[in-house]
């Protein structure tokens, strides 16, 4: 099978050469702008919410991200989020809005199989890796810092 491996490698290189490339600068600029604007929207919401008496900046940050999540889910429902994301690329899926879009689009997609067996089962089919890795790695981080604190003698 060695000659096949060589043939495949040669074909792979040729395919790489002939396949059109994504327009690098164009897509980078779009990702930059989409991501930047999403963050600015979050910042505006955070600063406005922070003006409410009794709301700390940290609370305002939480409420701002909740607002972004709800807005993104609503846009997904209306069918406009994916149209924006086709241009935004990473600028649309890296912010928390992309997380919300992935979750709600899966929920909508599998609604046809029922609320229990479709929506509820498949809601995490795209964002599952984020939640699972987040829980596992943050737990590891917590344990690690606990051990460090023990050794350091701060607790």
């Amino acid at each position: 099978m060695t000659d096949n491996a060589e043939r495949n490698a040669r074909y792979g290189k040729y395919v790489e050469w002939i396949s059109p490339k994504t327009d690098y600068t164009h897509s980078l600029v779009k990702a930059f702008v989409a991501g930047g604007l999403t963050c600015v929207t979050g910042e505006i919401a955070r600063n406005l919410l922070g003006m409410i008496p009794g709301v700390t900046d940290e609370q305002a940050a939480v409420f701002a991200s909740v607002l972004l999540v709800v807005a993104a889910i609503f846009m997904t429902g209306l069918g406009v989020y994916d149209a924006i994301a086709r241009h935004g690329g990473a600028g649309s899926f890296l912010p928390i809005t992309g997380f919300a879009n992935a979750m709600s689009s899966a929920a909508m997609e599998f609604r046809a199989e029922g609320l229990i067996t479709g929506t509820a089962v498949k809601m995490f089919s795209v964002v599952g890796p984020v939640v699972v890795n987040g829980v596992v790695w943050s737990a590891a981080a917590g344990v690690l810092r606990y051990i460090v604190a023990l050794i350091w003698g701060t607790i």
Binding site: G79, S105, A106, F110
Partner: peptide, 16 residues
């Protein structure tokens, strides 16, 4: 739905 992502999921595809 069967081969890729939910319809409303925002993703980019390569030009090929």
């Amino acid at each position: 739905r069967q081969y890729r992502f939910p319809l409303e999921y925002g993703c980019q595809r390569p030009p090929y």
